[in-house]
Every structure is written in structure tokens, then in C-alpha cells.
């Protein structure tokens, strides 16, 4: 232990001397052109190395102190209890808060995304169908074989489209708004 303390004292002295005497001296000499940059750099690194050793020794001594262990344990225990409280409050408050503000849940957003994707696919399908119909309309009637049925792609079931009665309701509302 005495040897360890002696090392720390040595390092403190080295660091203090390097930063207060040697480094300013070496830097001044270098600035005046009578010293080398290398000397100043070496002195700075010596001071730095000694400081790191001192800092490390201080931390190690702190860790070895029995009081540090007790403080660490109690602080961690308190922090964990607060974390548990925070988790519990968050878990309780947020579902209710979401409901009150009308914020959608993650699953509702996912469902909406799926509906969106389905509608986009349906629009693409309609566009393709339109193209086919336009092409067939543009063909001269003499070349059309009327005995064969026209190739029209099948439409998928429109699961997400509004039912007919809802559409008529919307149409009525619009008509009312526009004064028809």
C-alpha cells in the first residue's frame, strides 16, 4: 500500500512539474527558436501520462473503498425502483391518454397502411383495364372477331370499397351541400 501511495505521489509530482515548469519552459524555448518542438511534445506527453496514471489510481482507490460499494448498490437500487415506477406509470397512463386524444394505436395504423396498399393496387388494376379497353376500342371493327369474347381482366373483389348504400348516402349529402 505504501509503495502504491509512493507511486501516486511520484506521478503527481511528475505531472505538476511537467505542466507548470517543464512544458512552459520548453514551449518558450521552441517559440524563441532555441528549443526543439520534439522536446516540448515529449514533455507534454510525459505530463499527460502521469496525469492518466494518477486519475486511474484515484478511481481504483475509490472502487476499493467499501463505502463506494454500498453507495453504488443503494443508488442502483433507488434508480431501478424509479425505473419500475416509471414503467408502471407509462404502462397505465399511455393507453388511456391515447384513447382520450384520439391517437391511433400502432395496429390501427398498420391496418390503415394495408388498406392503402390494397387501394393502390386496385387503382393500378383499373388503369390496366382502361388501357386494354382503349386498345380494343382503337382496333378496326373488320379485324375484330365478334365470335370470340373480348379479353377483359377480372376485377378482384373490392373488399375495402364503400358499400353501394353508403355511396348513395355520400352522393345525397353532396347534392344537398350544392343545393341540388
Amino acid at each position: 500500500m505504501n509503495n502504491h501511495t509512493a507511486h501516486i505521489v511520484d506521478d503527481i509530482l511528475i505531472a505538476t512539474k511537467a505542466f507548470t515548469v517543464d512544458l512552459p519552459l520548453a514551449s518558450t524555448q521552441w517559440a524563441l527558436g532555441i528549443g526543439k518542438e520534439e522536446t516540448a511534445t515529449t514533455t507534454a506527453w510525459q505530463g499527460y501520462d502521469a496525469s492518466v496514471r494518477v486519475a486511474t489510481a484515484v478511481v481504483d482507490s475509490l472502487y476499493h473503498a467499501p463505502l463506494s460499494g454500498i453507495v453504488f448498490d443503494r443508488t442502483l437500487a433507488v434508480a431501478l425502483r424509479w425505473q419500475q415506477l416509471s414503467n408502471a406509470v407509462t404502462g397505465t397512463v399511455f393507453p388511456g391518454f391515447r384513447h382520450t386524444v384520439g391517437m391511433p394505436t400502432a395496429s390501427a395504423i398498420h391496418e390503415l397502411e394495408a388498406t392503402n396498399a390494397h387501394l393502390a393496387a386496385e387503382i393500378d388494376e383499373q388503369r390496366d383495364l382502361q388501357k386494354v379497353l382503349l386498345q380494343q376500342t382503337a382496333q378496326p371493327s373488320s379485324t375484330t372477331d365478334i365470335t370470340q369474347p373480348r379479353h377483359i381482366p377480372k376485377l378482384r373483389a373490392r373488399r375495402h370499397a364503400r358499400p353501394r348504400h353508403q355511396l348513395s348516402l355520400v352522393a345525397k349529402q353532396l347534392a344537398h351541400q350544392h343545393g341540388y
Binding site: V59, D60, Y63, H64, P66, S68, G69, I70, V71, F72, D73, L76, A77, L80, R81, Q84
Partner: peptide
């Protein structure tokens, strides 16, 4: 050193 610090960790804190 860190083992010495860790020795202060009680079973209750580990369970927490």
C-alpha cells in the same frame, strides 16, 4: 478494482 465495487451489489439489487 471493479470487482471490489461489484462486491457491494446485494442480492436484492440483482433481483431488482
Amino acid at each position: 478494482p471493479v470487482y471490489a465495487l461489484g462486491a457491494g451489489l446485494s442480492p436484492e439489487t440483482v433481483a431488482l
